[in-house]
Computed example of a mutant assay.
Amino acid sequence: MDTAPRPTPGELTFRDATAADVDALVVLIESAYRGDSSRTGWTTEADILEGQRTDPQGVVDVINAPASRLLTVERDGAIVACCQLEHRDDHVYFGMFAVSPALQGAGLGKVIIAEAERTARGTWGAREMHMTVISVREDLIAWYERRGYRRTGKMTPFPYGDERFGIPQRDDLQFELLVKDL
């Protein structure tokens, strides 16, 4: 597994997360999705979910999972984004995608998802990327569609009652599977 930092345009470095990154990654992920800080960016879920998005144990679990990588993105030595890549049978699952709210809307997400797709092909020979998105997040789904992901219509229930995933503010949440051929 190639874990060497890889500089890219814009002075970004991609590397696998380590245990030393856990606290910074939790702060990043929470800031991108929950609370007032998330409202700086456009990926906020603050209007549909309160509570936590993840916790230190959740991040450690992703780092330590077999056939999984938590791709960490740095700029000038600071963690500015991350995403989970997990090899599952004939595809790679893409999740835990977070970009610092202060940097959202400037094209950084496009660069990161392209690197994630390259990594999925290069590491596991994957031909497909899968992800799940809360189905009411039409703006986010549209962004993924512009990157080549397609809606499948396959839904899975939101884990109501499990506060590890947040506290829902509405009763119609579910996850939709999006897929892209690599």
Results as ranks from 00 to 15, higher is better:
A106P: 00
R75T: 05
E163W: 00
F97C: 02
D172P: 06
Q52G: 01
G148A: 13
D90P: 09
I79N: 04
A114H: 09
L28A: 03
D23G: 06
W124M: 14
P157M: 08
V133A: 15
I141Q: 14
A78W: 03
G41Y: 01
K180C: 07
A20Y: 02
D61C: 02
T13I: 11
G58P: 08
I167V: 13
I113T: 15
P56T: 08
E163H: 10
M155R: 14
A106D: 12
A102Q: 08
L12Q: 04
R164Y: 02
A98R: 06
P66W: 03
D139A: 14
A67E: 14
I29T: 09
G10P: 06
L177N: 05
R121D: 04
F165R: 05
R121A: 10
L28G: 04
A19P: 06
G125C: 09
L70C: 13
V73I: 10
D61P: 05
R151H: 10
V22E: 08
A65H: 12
V60D: 11
P66F: 04
A32N: 10
M129F: 14
R6Y: 03
L108A: 11
F97L: 14
W143V: 12
A65D: 07
P5D: 06
R150W: 11
L103P: 00
S135W: 04
L182N: 15
I63C: 07
T3M: 03
G125N: 11
A142N: 05
N64L: 07
R151L: 10
A46T: 14
L28V: 01
S31L: 01
R34S: 06
V59N: 04
V80W: 09
M155S: 13
V27W: 08
V26N: 02
